[in-house]
């Protein structure tokens, strides 16, 4: 069996408050394997972005990792000194954000930014770096790349900017890209194209991706495996087809049923009562128990860990004893 590229073990992220502390990520455990696209899905506030930020060392203080470990292959990266972490970013792990302008400098041309990134990470001459930059832009689908490379970010449409950001992320030939809602600001017809580019490029370069999104459609289109987050915990992990067609966790089941179907006529959407708890009001036991139609006594008292079943991993007491 292949070794994981990234291994997150019992990750806990906390925000200290005046009297208490808020646990935003609560023992999050998962792996990403080389070359795969792992989806992180869940509703807003579930902890998806924080998971990405924790991995890449960009948690905003006072938020901090309070427990757990993060391994990139054989290297532990959750306790790296600032300077080492900075060098790792872009080189071994790159980021793509929802707003491409977060990653682009408005007063530099695309050439300036791409060439600088290339030369930071790879030993390339000016001429070779420019040629490589044009090649990258061409690969992500920027028409007339050798001309457009000297334009500024504002001269590109939102979709074209996100293509440039993908080129920039791939420039250092990273092993992992963390993409946080990369298509959320885009229209569907542009989104479809950006997902295609991201998938194709990462496949060609053998880059693994952690794809953070609230959109089940994006997950179904892009991912190999999916982790479903709820209230700072992982509810379920499995192959994308299993999660979409045959989810195990009652939360995932409700979530899938609440999305209107394009192929079937449904009179009434499945409705999960209530909403996700705030960090200061996460219920004891299983965090989903007050909204769960299948809950029983144990769910209110004991927190379920991820249980390995035939289909995947699920944090739900209904599957206790089924572990394989």
């Amino acid at each position: 069996m292949t070794e994981p590229l990234l291994s997150v073990r019992d990750l806990v992220v906390e925000f200290p408050k005046r009297k208490t502390r808020l646990t935003a990520l609560d023992h999050v455990t998962f792996d990403i394997y080389p070359g795969e696209i792992l989806g992180m899905v869940g509703e807003s506030g579930a902890g998806k972005s924080l998971t990405g930020a924790a991995i890449i060392g960009l948690l905003e203080p006072p938020g901090h990792i309070a427990a757990g470990e993060i391994w990139l292959k054989e290297q532990r990266i959750d306790k790296l000194p600032y300077e080492q972490m900075r060098r790792l970013r872009g080189k071994r792990i790159a980021m793509i954000f929802q707003d491409p302008l977060t990653s682009l400098n408005p007063i530099l041309t695309i050439a300036d930014q791409l060439i600088e990134t290339l030369q930071t990470h790879l030993p390339l001459s000016d001429k070779d770096a420019r040629a490589r930059a044009i090649q990258l832009l061409d690969e992500v689908g920027i028409p007339a790349a050798s001309k457009r490379i000297d334009d500024y970010p504002h001269q590109f449409s939102g979709g074209m900017r996100q293509r440039v950001v993908i080129a920039l992320a791939l420039a250092g030939e990273p092993e992992l890209i963390i993409a946080d809602e990369p298509t959320t600001a885009l229209d569907v017809s542009v989104q479809a194209q950006i997902i295609d580019v991201l998938k194709r490029m990462c496949h060609d370069y053998g880059t693994a991706v952690m794809l953070v999104t609230h959109d089940m459609g994006v997950i179904a289109e892009a991912c190999d495996r999916v982790a479903v987050m709820y209230a700072g915990r992982i509810a379920e992990i499995g192959d994308v087809r299993q999660i979409v067609k045959d989810p195990q966790h009652p939360y995932t089941q409700g979530l899938m049923g609440s999305i209107p179907s394009l192929t079937e006529r449904v009179d009434r959407l499945v409705q999960i009562p209530g909403s996700m708890p705030r960090l200061d009001a996460i219920p004891a036991g299983c965090a989903f128990n007050p909204r769960c139609t299948q809950q029983f006594d144990r769910c209110k008292q004991q927190r379920p860990d991820l249980i390995k079943t035939k289909k995947g991993q699920v944090a739900c007491w209904l599957y206790d004893g089924e572990s394989s």
Partner: peptide
């Protein structure tokens, strides 16, 4: 037709779709 082709197949129904190109 293009819009329908662009919607992600969130049910993984295997709906046949063409690749979408261009921008508004």
């Amino acid at each position: 037709r293009m819009l329908l082709d662009a919607i992600p197949d969130h049910e993984m129904s295997g709906r046949r779709r063409k690749q979408v190109t261009g921008e508004i």
